[in-house]
Design a binder for these strands. Sequence first.
DNA 1: CCGCATCCGATAGGATACTG
DNA 2: CAGTATCCTATCGGATGCGG
Lengths: 135, 135
Amino acid sequence: MDERVSFVDCADGEARQWDHRAGCEVRAVLDRVGDRWSLLALAYLAERTHRFNELWRKIDGVSRRVMTVTLRQLERDGLVRRTVHPTVPPRVDYELTPLGASLHRTVQVLSSWSDRHEAELAAARATYDASVGAA
Amino acid sequence: MDERVSFVDCADGEARQWDHRAGCEVRAVLDRVGDRWSLLALAYLAERTHRFNELWRKIDGVSRRVMTVTLRQLERDGLVRRTVHPTVPPRVDYELTPLGASLHRTVQVLSSWSDRHEAELAAARATYDASVGAA
DNA sequence: CCGCATCCGATAGGATACTG
DNA sequence: CAGTATCCTATCGGATGCGG
């Protein structure tokens, strides 16, 4: 039997910056959407197309610079389509690609897990912290 | 109809450092296992119980300090159980809790998505980079 | 309106040396 | 063996101001 669990071992067709099979598959996703804002942007765009400022205001808390960077990364990965309307003033629409929608749906599974188990996590933390404080 | 997608809107029973409904549920998970090593540790522990150095050597690339911190966090969240054997030399076993195993299984869904779509992601990036280089 | 450039602080995480 | 302590760097992301 294999000594490694599935997503640990991987084909690593293309070398990553962190070599030696570092949980390649999941990491590939997490390295993209594991940051603070990507998933949130994905979520809003899953509803409907948004303009830049529109999205920026909804996510309020992110700086414009980071909003831009985030969207660019998502665009680069083919998760989001960016459409520039050459009007005055300029108008840029962001919408999910089918790939992005697919990822969004997949992430909901994690979201759902979190939802179902957040009480357990909180309880575990409380127990742990108590035992540490007692010690 | 609701203007927000499910995991964007949340009860936020407990305030987070980043207020205003920041994709709470997914973030709750990602804030724990979204780092560089947690998922990898989870993966190895899903195979079987490991001793500290055993795990540390497998994940090779992580420093001992960070390995410790990572495992402590997982323990605090109730995902990993830490057992100290009062022997000489000391021996500490780490194993997944049922909750940890559950999370691991859930994360595999993401892993699987990444597996199925990594080609598309790579293609999208290639296209994007080419169009940027051409411009 | 959109987004880039610059600056700057916070933090994750690596290297190394030391301890029970 | 299983950590802890200290130091240090790299990266992320916020603030602000300019430019098309």
